[in-house]
Amino acid sequence: MSINQSLREFISNCALPANEARILLAHLLERHYQLPRSALLSRDDMRLNEQAFEEWESLVSRRMNGEPIAYILGKKGFHNIELQVGPGVLIPRPETELLVEIALSEIAKLNKPTKVLDLGTGSGAIALSIASAAPQASLLATDRSAEALAIAKHNAHFLNLTEQVQFSQGNWYEAVSPQNQFDVIVSNPPYIANQDPHLTQGDLRFEPPSALTDYASGLSCLEIIIAGADKYLKPGGLIVVEHGFDQSEAVLELMKETDLIDVQAHLDLAGHSRAASGRKRF
């Protein structure tokens, strides 16, 4: 690809899908020229300078090798915020916004200062989205990965949410004081079964395996989180977890077995059962 091409020609001649080429070019325009994405149209005859062109070739090469765009750009939009992401954390997915919406609905119903626990926070996507949208909520976000917590803390600082969201390192409830109880518990744990072929496909090849799979049936982390919820929920408190598209029945049964009430399945935008919720008895 020649440096003597316009933005329009870069997109049309790129080996990547046009939508991906536009995302990468928009990143370059912002980074090198402080121009908005709209410049792809308003200045589509523009040429890149040598430095920007070299970076363009590098970005295209990385994407052609399969690296996720979110990792290439170092950021990902989620719900109503933008997050720094990197190879140490799971890339936030649109379907996970369902957990945020369920939690926000519960917080609105309570209509009082609310305590929320986010187990396995990763980049902080769920906790920080809730905090951003619900100033009356205080959150504890946990993760066993120091690398993930460092990214989550950076995101909290960038979003000015450090007073509202606290962080703790540890494996699930091990990171939480036994005396601590919450109005809402949310979690998007690893739920892909070990040896699932999806782990070797697409973006998943680049993401941390421990954030994707439990190295077992796909249900072991969900079992721990659901089994421990009673101790850490206030009476009437809500737990909501994300799960795989084919795990709804099993997860709902886990909740019923632990004596949670008001057990419900929740559909994502594609119509798949993607989350389950239950409530501690009053």
Rank of each mutant, 00 (worst) to 15 (best):
A18Q: 14
A70V: 02
C14S: 14
E67Q: 05
W172Q: 08
V241F: 07
K109H: 08
R205H: 13
D214M: 05
E223R: 14
G228H: 05
D196N: 10
Q179E: 13
G122V: 07
Q264N: 14
L204M: 10
Q5L: 15
T213G: 05
A134W: 01
A193L: 08
R37E: 11
A152V: 09
L48V: 05
A18K: 13
V176F: 08
E95Y: 08
L117C: 05
F182M: 03
E223S: 11
A131W: 05
H27S: 06
S277V: 06
S273Q: 15
L41N: 12
Q34I: 07
R62D: 11
I11L: 03
E249H: 15
C14L: 12
A131Y: 02
Q169K: 13
T142S: 05
P94V: 09
I192H: 06
K256F: 15
S6M: 09
A250G: 00
T200F: 15
L260M: 06
E106H: 08
L83W: 01
E106G: 04
Q166F: 12
P68G: 07
T142I: 05
P17W: 01
S123M: 04
F158Y: 15
E55I: 00
L117Y: 02
P178K: 11
I224L: 14
P36G: 02
V240N: 02
K76E: 01
T96L: 07
E253F: 13
P87Q: 06
F206I: 13
S58H: 13
V116P: 02
L83Y: 01
D118W: 08
Y191R: 00
P190N: 06
D246T: 12
Q181M: 08
F53S: 02
Q136G: 04
P94E: 11
E57R: 14
P209A: 12
R22G: 04
D118E: 06
L140S: 07
Q179K: 14
R279E: 03
S123H: 06
P178F: 06
L48K: 01
S129A: 05
G236V: 01
N65S: 14
T96Y: 09
F206D: 12
Q34N: 12
L83E: 02
L29V: 04
T96E: 09
G77S: 12
L260Y: 05
F10S: 09
G278V: 03
I23E: 06
D183Y: 00
D45F: 14
S277G: 07
L212Y: 07
L139W: 10
R22A: 02
V85I: 06
I185S: 01
P208K: 06
I192A: 08
N49G: 10
A134N: 00
D203Q: 11
A265G: 13
A270M: 12
L104P: 00
S58F: 10
S129T: 03
A108D: 10
D259F: 15
E54Q: 14
M255I: 03
N194I: 14
A137L: 03
F206P: 12
L110G: 01
